[in-house]
């Protein structure tokens, strides 16, 4: 790949009323990375996720997702980008109640233009992949919290998007289920999906190859300021040049 999966350049996002949620943030995430954006609440990490997920547009700066300059895309084109390129995992799962797991996952593909049988086929495969092949007919209220989050992850990856954005994926789970979900995300990353996890939990962040720490709308530290393929430490490399 000649371009990064995510590239933010001098991105600021100011809300009406003057609250600056992001202040001149620059970030590059390569294809195949597994990274955490970690910070206390109010640090701007959720805004960052929304901007990366193209759900929100920056006030200034440029955002490239999978090589596309977001500012040049219309609302419809952004929607198509989300449908094919980005999978979302939310803290509160956002599953439809009274709908079996299989249909919850299959309905997530309704905006991709796939036929219904194809959507169901892919949904079944995705549920198998997250280890819920035996729970396809269960409705959300019949599943544990960890299982629900697995269904949500299956929905996010059913369309095989190159990028998965997870917003506090373990926030509503006990530690055992949380560990299971994190293992699953690791597995997905191992098969090539770029995964960005937003969390306030330093312990979870510490288990990931790269951590981007945020505070007050700025990046305060990045464990891999240089691309991970470059030799450690980065300071030595750049000093020579």
């Amino acid at each position: 790949m000649t371009y990064p999966m995510i590239e933010l350049t001098d991105v600021s996002r100011t809300y009406p009323g003057g609250v600056a949620a992001l202040q001149s943030v620059s970030l590059r995430i390569r294809h195949g990375e597994l990274a955490a954006i970690v910070g206390p609440s109010g640090s701007g990490k959720s805004t960052m996720l929304n901007v990366i997920g193209t759900l929100d547009r920056p006030t200034s700066g440029t955002v490239h997702i999978d090589g596309y300059d977001v500012s040049t895309l219309s609302d419809g084109q952004l929607s198509a980008l989300r449908a094919t390129t980005i999978g979302f995992v939310f803290q509160s799962f956002h599953l439809a109640s009274k709908v079996p797991a299989l249909d919850n996952v299959a309905d997530g593909l309704v905006y991709t233009g796939l036929s219904r049988p194809e959507r169901r086929r892919r949904a079944a495969a995705a549920l198998d992949r997250v280890g819920l092949g035996h729970r396809m007919d269960h409705e959300p209220h019949e599943l544990s919290g960890g299982e629900r989050q697995r269904v949500a992850i299956a929905r996010a990856v059913a369309g095989d998007p190159p990028l998965v954005l997870a917003d506090e994926p373990t926030g509503a789970l006990d530690s055992v289920s949380g560990t299971g979900v994190m293992e699953l995300l690791h597995e997905l990353n191992a098969s090539g999906t770029t995964i960005l996890i937003i969390t306030h939990d330093r312990e979870i962040a510490a288990g990931l190859p790269r951590q981007v720490r945020m505070r007050d709308g700025r990046i305060v530290s990045d464990s891999a300021a240089a691309p991970p393929s470059e030799p450690w430490p980065r300071h030595a490399g750049s000093g020579v040049a």
Binding site: T2, Y3, E7, T9, T62, H64, G67, Y68, D69, T72, L73, G76, Q77, S79, A80, L81, A83, T84, T85, V110, Y111, T112, G113
Partner: peptide, 14 residues
């Protein structure tokens, strides 16, 4: 940013 000349994604009709 590296500008890539690619077709822009277009939403699928339902």
């Amino acid at each position: 940013g590296i500008e890539v000349a690619r077709l822009k994604p277009s939403p699928a009709r339902m």
